[in-house]
Design a protein around this nucleic acid. Structure first.
Length: 568
RNA sequence: CGGGGCGUAGCGCAGCUUGGUAGCGCGCCUGCUUUGGGAGCAGGAUGUCGGAGGUUCAAAUCCUCUCGCCCCGACCA
C-alpha cells in the first residue's frame, strides 16, 4: 500500500504515561490508541499484526482438531448463578441490567456459555470428544489496568474448551492443546516457557501458563537449571525435608519473656538477639470465614496460593484484628502456636527446628525455648512457603533459576467442576449417565503482540519477526520528485505485490531521514532504499531491520532475496 | 479501596506560590529554499485553562464539590 494513503499516526516523543517499551512503542508506531482506562482502539497497523497472530492461532487450533465457534459477549446472570460464579467472581465481572431489569454480564470468559451449549446438544459418548474455540472480545473490570494492552479491561482472547468422556480423554485433549500452544508461540517468534501454574478462580486440577520471558513481566517464574521443572512462583514447590527424630526432653524449658512493643520478626530478633530462623512466624488467616493458624520459619514467607490450594477454600485472607484477638487472646504481633485456638498448620521449614522463639499469645510477651512435641503439637505439616533463591529444584535438587514472564496462554484441566455444577452429562456405552470431563485453554491475542514487542525492539523501534510483521517490506524512494526513482520504486512495488509479498511504498514527500525513522519505528523487517546513487548503477539498497545489515542488489537480485527471506 | 500525582492548543509542557494581556516546543497551514537518518527562513491558524458552584471589581491562578487519567499498594484465568 502507499504510505501516503495509509493511517499510521507515528509519534516522535515517548508517551509520558506508558511505562514499558511495548506500550510506548505500540503508541509511537501507531498501532493503538487509548479510548479510556484499559480500553484501546487498534489502528490499521496494529490490527494487521493482531490478524496475523489470530491466523496462526486458527491454523494451529484447526490442525489440532478444534472447531471454531462464536459465542455471545453478553451473558445472562442465570448461567453464572448456576455455576456459582455470579457470587464468586467479584467486581471484575462487569454486570448490568437490561430494560426489563434482567441481569447480565459481559463475558470475562465463557465456561458457562459453552457448557450450556454442549450440555444441550451432546447426549452420548459417541459425540465426544469435542473441542470448541473462539476468538472474541472479553471484558474484565480490572482494578488497575496498566501497561497498555498488556493488562487492559477489554481485550481479545482465543478460548478453547474441550469435552471428553473420561479422564484419559481429557489428558489427550490437554496434550493436544499444550502442543498446539507450543507451536503457536514458536511461530509468533517468541521465547517462551510453559510453567506449572495455580488454577485460581477458574478452578480445576492442573494447569500450565505459557510465559514469554521478559523482565517487564508481571509474573515471577522458577525453573530448574537441569531438569524440565518450571513453575509460577505462586505454585513452585519446596521439597519436603527429611525428618530428624528429636527428643525434646533434655532441652531447656520454655520461658515467657517480656517483650514490650516488640512485634515484627526484625524487632523480635533484635530484641532477643536471635536470628529470624529461630523464630516461628504465626499468621492467622480466615479461610471461608474459619480461622486457621499458619506457622512458618521467621525468615520465610507464606505463599497464599499454596495455602488456598492446601485448604481447598475459596476465600482466603489475613484475619482481622478481632479474629486474631479471639484466637490468640492478644493483639497482632504476639501470636504463637502454644495454646492457640485454631486449626494449626506448620510449614515444612519448621520440621526440624528446636528451642524456637514464638509469640506468647499475650500482649508484650514472647516465648523462648519452645519445642514442638513438648510445648505444642502440630498435626499438619505442609509445603506452604514461597520458594527463594537458595532453594533447590523440588524434583532433582539442582539449582533453580528465577525469571519474570508475561502470561500469554493458560491451559487448565478443569475436570468436572462445571459439568457437575451445570449438569453437563452424557450416556456412556453402558447407558450410565456421566459428567463430561472438561479442559479450557486461553491465549491473550493483544498481550501476545505486546509480549512480542517486549522481546523484539531496539532504541529505534519495533523489530517484527517476519511471521507476524504487518508488512514484509517497505520501499523507500529517497526523493519522490525524481521520476527515475519513482518509476523504479513503482516497478518494484508491482513485482512484489504480484508475488503476494506485503509491501508499503513510502511515497510521502518527506525527507529521507523522516522515512527511515518511521520505517525503523514501525519495525518492517526489510527496507529497500531507492536513491539516485545506486539507481544509476541499476541497483538498490536493502536493509535488514533486525541486524542492521545493508546489502546492495540489482533489482532482480533484490526481488529474489526478498522472496526467499519472506518465505523462510 | 488506601496513599501520591496530573488535567492549560492535536501532542509534550510552562504559567498557579503573590488573582489583572494565556504562553513555549513539536505538529498543522501558506510560500520560498532544501532533499540518503526526524531541514532552514518567513508568514499563519488553533484554547469553553476537565466540569459545576463559590469568593472577588476581576479567577487558569483562591475555596468547595465533581469527573477523568496516571503512579505505588492491595487484587487478578
Amino acid at each position: 500500500m502507499r504510505y501516503s494513503e495509509m493511517f499510521i499516526p507515528t509519534v516522535r516523543e515517548v508517551p509520558s504515561d506508558a511505562e514499558i517499551v511495548s506500550h510506548q512503542l505500540m503508541i509511537r508506531a501507531g498501532l493503538i490508541r487509548k479510548l479510556t482506562s484499559g480500553i484501546y482502539s487498534f489502528l490499521p497497523l496494529g490490527l494487521k499484526v493482531i490478524r496475523k497472530v489470530e491466523q496462526i492461532v486458527r491454523e494451529e487450533m484447526n490442525r489440532s482438531g478444534a472447531q471454531e465457534v462464536f459465542l455471545p459477549a453478553v451473558q445472562p446472570a442465570e448461567l453464572w448463578q448456576e455455576s456459582g460464579r455470579w457470587k464468586m467472581y467479584g467486581k471484575e465481572l462487569l454486570r448490568f441490567k437490561d430494560r426489563h431489569n434482567r441481569e447480565y454480564c459481559i463475558g470475562p470468559t465463557h465456561e458457562e456459555v459453552i457448557t450450556d451449549l454442549v450440555r444441550n446438544e451432546v447426549k452420548t459418548y459417541r459425540q465426544l470428544p469435542k473441542n470448541l474455540y473462539q476468538i472474541q472480545t472479553k471484558f474484565r473490570d480490572e482494578i488497575r489496568p496498566r501497561f497498555g494492552v498488556m493488562r487492559c479491561r477489554e481485550f481479545s482472547m482465543k478460548d478453547a474448551y474441550s469435552f471428553d468422556a473420561d479422564w484419559e480423554g481429557v489428558d489427550v485433549s490437554y496434550q493436544k492443546m499444550f502442543d498446539a500452544y507450543s507451536t503457536i508461540f514458536t511461530r509468533c517468534g517468541l521465547k517462551f516457557r510453559a510453567v506449572e501454574a495455580d488454577t485460581g478462580n477458574i478452578g480445576g486440577s492442573f494447569s500450565h501458563e505459557f510465559m514469554v520471558i521478559a523482565d517487564s513481566g508481571e509474573d515471577a517464574l522458577v525453573f530448574c537449571s537441569v531438569c524440565e521443572y518450571a513453575a509460577n512462583i505462586e505454585k513452585a514447590e519446596v521439597a519436603k525435608p527429611e525428618k530428624i527424630p528429636i527428643d525434646p526432653a533434655p532441652l531447656p524449658v520454655m520461658e515467657i519473656v517480656h517483650t514490650p512493643d516488640v512485634r515484627t520478626i526484625e524487632e523480635v530478633s533484635a530484641f532477643l538477639r536471635v536470628t529470624p530462623q529461630d523464630i516461628v512466624k504465626t499468621l492467622v488467616f480466615e479461610a471461608d470465614g474459619t480461622p486457621v493458624a499458619v506457622l512458618v520459619r521467621g525468615d520465610e514467607e507464606v505463599n497464599e496460593a499454596k495455602l488456598r490450594g492446601y485448604l481447598g477454600c475459596d476465600a482466603l485472607e489475613l484475619a482481622t484484628d478481632d479474629t486474631v484477638l479471639k484466637v490468640t487472646g492478644s493483639p497482632k504481633g504476639f501470636a504463637g502456636p502454644v495454646g492457640i485456638k485454631a486449626r494449626t498448620i506448620a510449614d515444612y521449614s519448621l520440621m526440624n527446628r528446636v528451642h524456637m522463639v514464638t509469640g506468647a499469645n499475650r500482649e508484650d510477651y514472647h516465648a523462648t525455648n519452645v519445642n514442638m512435641g513438648r510445648d505444642f503439637t502440630v498435626k499438619e505439616f505442609a509445603d506452604l512457603r514461597m520458594v527463594k533463591e537458595t532453594d533447590t529444584c523440588p524434583r532433582c535438587k539442582n539449582p533453580l533459576n528465577f525469571a519474570r514472564g508475561i502470561e500469554v496462554g493458560h491451559t487448565f484441566k478443569l475436570g468436572t467442576k462445571y459439568s457437575k455444577q451445570m449438569r453437563a452429562t452424557f450416556l456412556d456405552s453402558n447407558g450410565q449417565e456421566k459428567e463430561m470431563v472438561m479442559g479450557c485453554y486461553g491465549i491473550g491475542i493483544g498481550r501476545t503482540v505486546a509480549a512480542c514487542i517486549e522481546q523484539n525492539n531496539d532504541t529505534k523501534g519495533i523489530i517484527w519477526p517476519m511471521f507476524i510483521a504487518p508488512y514484509h517490506v517497505i520501499l523507500t524512494p529517497v526523493n519522490v520528485k525524481d521520476p527515475l526513482i519513482m518509476e523504479a520504486a513503482l516497478k518494484l512495488y508491482q513485482r512484489l505485490t504480484d508475488d503476494a509479498i506485503e509491501v508499503i511504498l513510502d511515497d510521502r514527500d518527506e525527507r529521507a531521514g523522516v522515512k527511515f525513522n518511521d520505517a525503523d519505528l514501525i519495525g518492517i523487517p526489510l527496507r529497500v532504499t531507492i536513491g539516485h546513487k545506486r539507481l544509476s548503477e541499476g541497483k538498490v539498497e536493502l536493509k535488514i531491520r533486525k541486524t542492521g545489515e545493508e546489502k546492495v542488489f540489482t533489482i532482480e537480485d533484490a526481488l529474489e532475496f526478498i522472496r526467499r527471506t519472506v518465505r523462510e
